[in-house]
Design a binder for these strands. Structure first.
Lengths: 152, 152
DNA sequence: CCTTGAGTTGAAGTGCGCTTCAACTCCGAG
DNA sequence: CTCGGAGTTGAAGCGCACTTCAACTCAAGG
């Protein structure tokens, strides 16, 4: 009881993430696991934190690849300290702030567009997400929606 | 010569949405087009507004299916008036407000968690998927509680 | 030892939001 | 009338984030 490591089922239960997803994360290099003699995964408890970070980041709209890159900034040799995590979280916080700001702008623009009836026009600030984001965000690439790269 | 209707290429140029996407939207019932004798699509200019609404909504993280439902609330008989659009936009505005609120909460929680080191714990408000901050990105995924016979 | 439930793998499937392709038609300028 | 770019279709493919499946092994209780 309360052992040093977790089975995949235990990690799944505690994190709320399906085992299949955890295996998938591992394949992508987002989390790690040791193996028992019988080849079963055993997770260090710190992996719980990584999984939490992954899910939280996803809620902010970050892709797994980007999350992988972020996690790669954690020290590989030692167990990450609270400071290590704080550094990551700060970066995400900026992302959140920027995202909140953009949504606020979108909302205000939407209000404006209700009044002016310009909803269909490109010149409307609502309708040029790329420019609007690039023009103002020092935080760089934010919430470009899914549409393909050459939707031009 | 500023004609009454637009070809798919014209609509694509003016809306910034690829023709293939426009056909896809039509298949899903998000936009409509008349046909020429030769079976080519001709779009009423009001479709521009629908397309704009679609793209804006996607930025807020709404799925095409939900957008379809929203658009279905527009009057089918007549051309939607500014008031019709305003009603839709108001609903979206609420959505934006809610989303902004959730992101703010996420940010504050993240701050709190940096301090308390609870990033890995379920009791952390960050980690409660119930809020379904659906994020944008590839298809709004709900963080479904794991399917399966947990209860069984 | 036997059984049972949890875990293992690679491969294939799913859903969304499209894009690409092949094969064909339309339409307007010359 | 010819030509070529724009348009048409259904079917297939893609990228992401997973899930499901089949076939198998492991681990622990009786």
């Amino acid at each position: 009881m309360h052992e040093a490591t977790l089975t995949i089922g235990q990690l799944a239960d505690r994190s709320g993430v399906a085992p299949s997803a955890l295996r998938y994360y591992e394949r992508l290099g987002l989390i790690r696991a040791e193996r028992t003699g019988g080849n079963q995964r055993r997770y260090a408890r710190t992996e719980l934190r990584r999984v939490a970070f992954i899910r939280i980041s996803q809620q902010v709209g970050v892709s797994l690849e980007e999350i992988r890159e972020a996690l790669a900034s954690l020290p590989s040799g030692r167990t990450p300290t609270p400071d290590d995590w704080a550094a990551l979280s700060r970066a995400w916080r900026n992302r959140l702030d920027e995202k909140i700001r953009l949504l606020g702008k979108l909302r205000d623009d939407l209000d404006g567009c209700i009044g002016c009836g310009c909803l269909s026009l490109q010149r409307c600030t609502l309708y040029n997400p790329g420019d609007a984001l690039a023009a103002e965000g020092s935080g760089a690439r934010l919430m470009l929606p899914r549409p393909g790269p050459d939707a031009a």
